[in-house]
Write a protein that binds this DNA or RNA. Structure first.
Lengths: 353, 353
DNA sequence: CTGAAAGCGCTTACAG
DNA sequence: CTGAAAGCGCTTACAG
């Protein structure tokens, strides 16, 4: 039971190889009669196109690009490492990968980078995006020129990308709230929250999800107004330190954004009777803080899986084949006991220093 | 910068294509001088073998098999569904997949099934194994005949398989303990544990990990002796019901094994003031129990990821290429908020009824 | 020990 | 609108 080839199909349909090929790939210029005959033969034989052979024959090379925000953000450094690491194993499949740095959180910079891509010789691109209409023009152009576009970690305007790979930040916030609620075991409490910026959509969504769950299921807990940190460790250290030394009634810390090293430093300076601590993204210092019992939980979006999926998705898109199975990506909960021994986490951090 | 081909290498080395091929694939019968020249050329040009072309030329078809325990166990039904689902998308790559049922937990049955595989025309196999020396004979034969063998979910004797894909059950138990500890917020408590069988290695390991963490970090909690359930829902229902109606001082339930539907039924019958509940494996009824707030946490080993990795691993093994990046698989923690909308979970359950 | 050549299942000009 | 043929990068007999 060897699978049928295109020449089997052609023979069964009574047409030439080339004509069968034209039908299979919708290349046009075929008589309706021929089309019907080929379609029938395909159905009868159960023909399925051999993508590997097709790619070989056109000497297919996938040139992929990732647009990633710059900066010392340990999370994006982790993403970068996962891309590079995956890329090493992908050269076997004739895939070249380029990481393009984009100034973080700047719509203008992102717009320009996307426009530049059209010049570049690229087949597919994954973009850490922003939901901004300014991006629509360059994105439309990119897609017109046949480039596959997906959003990664942070979405693009939906009509201008083929897929989005990332978590739902509302869910991430809800998950953080659930754990914080549980950890109070029915007792009273007050939760001090920290956010980088309320303009950052992901931060706002996480906080929203967090507050929703606390209000619904843990009414004996109070969520205090968030302290704005700009994701700056120094700001976090100072603010958290102030709360701790005030011997307030705060029973938990939830940092919605980045800058965790500052939070950990403040806690390390006053370890007795610290509040329950939840933060986002597993990077070298948050991992170490878990091990040191300075914090309790890390909610992570699994950048390794995100990157792998981005590659799989781009390839499927470029091969014009069905997408591989991809259930929703859900935030993962780490405690000190289920930490992955992922060397890329630590590399990421080393580079960000 | 097109990547060099074997004919580039042959030309650079001053030998024929066939000779270069012999060196690249270690086929032997080549003069040392030729070997050296080819090796140099490979290094100089940065040649990397095109696996797709190689597979095409030998008309490579991968015939893979999975040996999975039978029974109504919802977890293994979930595994089955993931295999079938992945298989649908794999026919494109000339991969055929066969699921072979094996009587659960029977060394004899497993031994026989492995022996049968040698007859069958199979290139690679993933086996839900047992650590039993009886398996070594048939496994050795299988590998001699060139079949790639990996352990899945439960390991085989280590020397007789190329890789193991599954979680560390000690880690799973530790994780369960950490969450249970947190949920007591420093208060006193007693934890009733349930195990299927202390002979089952995975159960014993989970319980061990659980007890270790409670003893080390939550000394104010007591772990009660496990109730033996044989993974039978009826036994669990009865036992848990008895504990609940005794109005004991039990503050938490931890079910190390299967049979959760019985536990949930007992809780559903007496929902007021129920203990904190941790179970293993996300299947339709444990998912529903989370949503219904009958239980608090599910520790899951992500069978979807395990299955995907099993396929990737077997392919890499058969292609004799480097293994793709695979960080340790860690148990995942689910609460009602980060549940995946995975249709295969529910299919699995429907079939097991 | 070495090399020339057919073939894997496709795509792509090219000729008609 | 249709078909014959070269070529993609490899493997595999086969001849020497």
């Amino acid at each position: 039971m060897v699978s049928p080839t295109l020449s089997d199909v052609a023979q069964a349909a009574g047409v030439s190889y080339a004509t069968a090929d034209r039908v299979i790939n919708n290349r046009g210029n075929v008589a309706q009669k021929s089309i019907d005959k080929v379609r029938e033969a395909v159905a009868a034989l159960g023909y399925v196109r051999n993508v590997a052979a097709a790619n070989l024959s056109r000497n297919r090379v996938y040139r992929l690009a990732f647009l990633i925000p710059t900066g010392t953000n340990a999370f994006f450094n982790r993403i970068r490492n996962h891309i590079r690491h995956a890329a090493e194993h992908l050269s076997v499949d004739r895939i070249t990968v380029e990481i393009i740095d984009v100034s973080a959180f700047s719509v203008d910079a992102l717009e320009e980078s996307i426009a530049d891509l059209a010049q570049r010789d690229v087949d597919g691109v994954a973009i850490v995006g922003l939901q901004n209409p300014l991006l629509e023009g360059p994105l439309a152009k990119l897609r017109e020129s046949g480039v596959a576009v997906i959003g990664l970690v942070s979405d693009l305007p939906q009509k201008f990308r083929s897929a989005y790979i990332g978590i739902d930040n509302m869910v991430a916030g809800r998950t953080a709230a659930r754990m914080t609620g549980m950890a109070h075991a029915g007792g009273l409490g007050a939760i001090q929250t920290f956010v980088g910026s309320m303009e950052a959509r992901d931060h706002a969504e996480r906080l929203q999800g967090f507050c929703d769950v606390i209000a619904a299921d843990y009414p004996h807990l109070t969520v205090l107004d968030p302290i704005l940190t700009k994701d700056d460790p120094a700001v976090l250290k100072e603010a958290a330190g102030a709360v701790l030394s005030a011997r307030s009634n705060v029973t938990a810390f939830y940092n919605v954004g980045a800058g965790n090293s500052g939070l950990v430093a403040a806690i390390g300076a006053a370890p007795e009777n610290r509040p329950f601590c939840v933060v986002h993204e597993l990077v070298a210092h948050s991992k170490q803080a878990l091990i040191d019992k300075h914090i309790d939980l890390v909610i992570d979006q699994r950048p390794d899986i995100e990157v792998n999926r981005a590659f799989a998705m781009l390839r499927a898109l470029l091969d014009e084949r069905d997408l591989p199975p991809m259930p929703d990506l859900m935030p993962t909960i780490y405690v000190q006991d289920n930490l992955p021994a992922d060397p890329l986490i630590d590399i990421a951090e080393a580079q960000s220093r």
